[in-house]
């Protein structure tokens, strides 16, 4: 595992190209939240030729449905949700410029292949460390689908948001690498 790399979001192709599976990163900048139903609505809108609530170019999408903010908080607890449920929609978002996804758990092979093709990386944040993760979120604003409650799309300003690269654009997968390293031979 390499040193911690600081990156900014939205991401450029140059940033994406230098990231390797296993790299620990600190993300600073703007990321957008979207999970199950928000993904479906985004892709439905694309099918109908409607404008999306934000420009996808270079964006990092964080799979999260935060708990409500208490008075004085910018956001409630905000850890990652499981990513495979977004697999069906991910390539469509890569086609219009998405460069990063933050979640937890393995992705479908089709998504991993699409990541190579469209130059997009997949990060994991620590699932369940939601009170701690919320501290790296400095501003949050619902920008679309307010009726979805926790599933609404939020624009987040993050500073030093901790994540690790799971899938890079070269076909490496940290889950496979890590497992192979510690698997006990039968």
């Amino acid at each position: 595992m390499s040193d911690v790399i600081s990156i900014t979001a939205p991401m450029s192709d140059e940033t994406v190209a230098k990231l390797k599976a296993g790299d620990q990163v600190l993300i600073t900048g703007v990321v957008y939240t979207a999970r199950d139903t928000a993904h479906k609505r985004l892709v439905d809108s694309m099918d109908k030729g409607e404008a999306l609530p934000f420009d996808m170019k270079g964006q990092v999408i964080y799979y999260v449905g935060p708990s409500p903010a208490k008075p004085g908080q910018v956001i409630g607890s905000a850890g990652p949700t499981t990513s495979y449920r977004m697999d069906l929609y991910s390539e469509r978002l890569m086609e219009i410029g998405m460069k990063g996804m933050i979640g937890k758990g393995m992705r479908d092979k089709k998504v991993v292949d699409a990541m190579k093709k469209h130059k997009c990386v997949y990060f994991a944040a620590i699932g369940g460390a939601a009170a701690l993760i919320a501290r790296s979120i400095k501003a949050a604003e619902v920008i679309a689908y307010d009726d979805l409650g926790p599933e609404a799309i939020r624009r987040l300003e993050v500073v030093n948001f901790k994540a690790v690269v799971i899938n890079d654009i070269y076909g490496n997968d940290l889950y496979e690498i890590g497992k192979a390293k510690y698997k006990v031979a039968k």
């Binding site: 937890k104 758990g105 393995m106 994991a124 620590i126 699932g127 690790v164 940290l174 889950y175 690498i177 890590g178 497992k179 192979a180 390293k181 510690y182 698997k183 006990v184 039968k186």
Partner: peptide, 13 residues
């Protein structure tokens, strides 16, 4: 645990 997946599936025991 012998599968090697570890905490968060990042590798471990």
């Amino acid at each position: 645990n012998a599968l090697g997946m570890g905490p968060q599936g990042l590798g471990g025991v």
